[in-house]
């Protein structure tokens, strides 16, 4: 594949040119339409992916058969690395494409080769795993230090302040992101609306009172 595609992925910018060339010789890209199921939970893990453009979400099935949204990933994020590094080598979650997405694919043998032969690549993977672990630690700290009301207010401000995601956020996805369940998110949004802090319209949450929401975010 073209080395230019490798250079498009921000997290690869720290790699030596020799490593980037080794990835280019082994990886291939694929364009995926919205709604496509890239990985199915429990199936053998055969590849890992790096998102070039687009957005996907991770889902997992509960014991009662209901599906739960776990997380969302976008440009630069690796997918399925943990599955390749575990003993069982099975996909840890189902991955569904939210908006047209382009991914770089590395098959297990090529991933293992790069890990074993290119120190900067294995360091990069370690840093990515550390970043995931750090996010989980932050979430655990948030869960113990802040009430869910504060976490929701903070996340709404964050979403409104930065470029909106083209695929938007469902209540399930918001709940997964702040460590709660969708019913709680729904109840809190109703409370915020009753208090005049937000306005809910078809497919939109409009934030009305930054000062008050910021205050709640620190509770």
């Amino acid at each position: 594949m073209e080395i230019e595609t490798i250079n498009q992925i921000a997290i690869f910018s720290s790699l030596d040119s020799e490593t980037r060339l080794a990835i280019a010789q082994r990886a291939f890209t694929r364009r995926l339409p919205a709604g496509f199921t890239l990985l199915t939970e429990g199936m053998p893990a055969e590849s890992c992916y790096f998102i070039v453009t687009g957005e996907v979400r991770a889902l997992r099935m509960n014991t009662d058969g209901r599906v739960q949204v776990l997380a969302r990933f976008s440009a630069g994020d690796p997918i399925n690395i943990i599955s390749l590094l575990t003993e069982e080598k099975t996909n840890r979650a189902t991955i569904e494409v939210l908006s047209p997405t382009s991914v770089l694919i590395l098959q297990t043998a090529d991933f293992d080769f790069l890990i074993s032969n290119y120190t900067d690549f294995s360091n990069l993977i370690l840093r990515q795993l550390a970043a995931r672990l750090s996010k989980i630690t932050d979430l655990a700290a948030d869960l113990s230090l802040y009430a869910v009301r504060a976490r929701l207010a903070r996340f709404l401000i964050e979403l409104a302040d930065f470029t909106p995601s083209p695929s938007g956020w469902t209540q399930d996805e918001i709940a997964a992101h702040i460590g709660t369940v969708r019913d709680v998110v729904g109840r809190l949004l109703r409370d915020f609306e009753s208090a005049g802090l937000i306005l809910r319209q078809r497919g939109q949450i409009i934030l009305l009172d930054r000062d008050h929401l910021s205050e709640i975010a620190q509770d």
């Binding site: 979403l159 956020w169 469902t170 209540q171 497919g203 949450i205 409009i206």
Partner: peptide
């Protein structure tokens, strides 16, 4: 009416009724 009941009831997360968050 975009009530999102279908999304809520869907046991396989096949239906998405996303929300976009903006400032007024």
């Amino acid at each position: 009416s975009y009530c999102r009941d279908c999304e809520h009831l869907c046991p396989t997360a096949a239906i998405r009724a996303p929300l976009v968050v903006t400032w007024r």
